[in-house]
Write a protein that binds this DNA or RNA. Structure first.
Lengths: 193, 193
DNA sequence: CCGTATATTAGGTCATTGTCCAAATATCAT
DNA sequence: ATGATATTTGGACAATGACCTAATATACGG
């Protein structure tokens, strides 16, 4: 419920009173469960982190298709918690608990992406040296963090599916130069759709 | 002065009273010049837009070096108005005046980037078809908009110069696959530094 | 079933925020 | 000097997040 309202109006524009009313509670009652608004945000952030834990996993025999399906699922998770993504910077700056957990998680996330990209190499889908893998990981991280923000500004009129497709394709294009012949075929399939 | 305080603490965490005090004014006096905080933000946004107007221009005989110098200068402008970049999404959502001006400006910005990239093609630095040029433009736009936000979260400990270098190199790497032999030499020079 | 300890709810207060206003004062052209 | 305009002042307003105490419900051991 809180998530729905936050997604609709933005975290900082939903008051505790407003939220309590929607929950048919009194304000004091809401603050009993979540003493501060940051605690609420912290809870939502935990939920998102857990969903992503289930989504971002190392895959044994990864294909480019599987890799981009995983990315697509991450995008979907971000949409479900879009209020967090849109207020990302402010939350990180003002909510030390969330910030600390995030920075801890993030390095393992990057490791997982890196592992999966190296698996793509072993599967002869792409070919890239260590610094190139690093580049791919940090580019994915940047796009994954901020695609919703940019879409909210520049592609408001598009559906969420169209937005996700746009950024999936952007990442696919970044992979393209590193793809083998086999990889190119799969990527061009993705880019065509 | 307002800019300095906003950059230091974030727009939403500098109060009108605090700001007025620093300006040795009364609050009511400040609101005489800027009736609302949004008017203040609007003014700062105008200033940034003007600086970028001077920076992002079509260049006749553009080189990759010149192109990345231009990008570097854009990054510098963003640093000077970092409070705006860090609150980008919220401003666009809640300040219709700024939002409207931004979306109008942005399409001409993209045109200019596109023109300059096509000039790089004419100069035999890179080779890319229309959709690839489009891809390059939208990727640059995304990175330019959000690099400061990501740096504020993930590279806090680095200096601004190091941060700019990181994202310049990221863009250089995105150009690399499209570079001609001549272009590759210049880009690898940039990536080495 | 009673009595007590714990969990929950209610209602209100507090300081802070952005915004607004009417009166007082300063500045300037005629 | 006088009238008009520009600026400054000090305070008020509603809304916000946070906090607190007293009332009430629930659960549990005897």
């Amino acid at each position: 419920m809180a998530l729905k309202m936050f997604n609709a109006s933005g975290i900082e524009y939903v008051g505790m009173r407003e939220l309590a009313a929607a929950l048919k509670m009194r304000v004091g009652n809401l603050t009993y469960y979540f003493p501060t608004k940051d605690d609420l945000v912290n809870r939502l952030s935990l939920d998102l982190a857990e969903e992503n834990n289930r989504t971002i996993v190392p895959v044994e025999h990864v294909t480019l298709k599987a890799f981009f399906d995983m990315l697509h699922q991450v995008f979907r998770n971000h949409i479900r918690y879009r209020c967090l993504m849109l207020s990302f910077v402010h939350i990180m700056e003002r909510n030390p608990i969330v910030a600390k957990r995030y920075s801890k998680i993030q390095s393992t996330r990057n490791d997982t992406w890196s592992t999966n990209i190296q698996a793509l190499q072993k599967g002869k889908y792409i070919s890239a040296d260590a610094t190139e893998v690093n580049f791919l990981v940090s580019t994915i991280a940047l796009i994954a963090r901020f695609w919703i923000s940019e879409a909210a500004i520049s592609f408001k009129q598009q559906t969420e599916e169209q937005q996700m497709e746009h950024y999936s394709k952007m990442i696919a294009r970044i992979f393209l130069p590193f793809a083998t012949a086999k990889g190119k075929r799969e990527l061009e399939e993705l880019l065509k759709a």
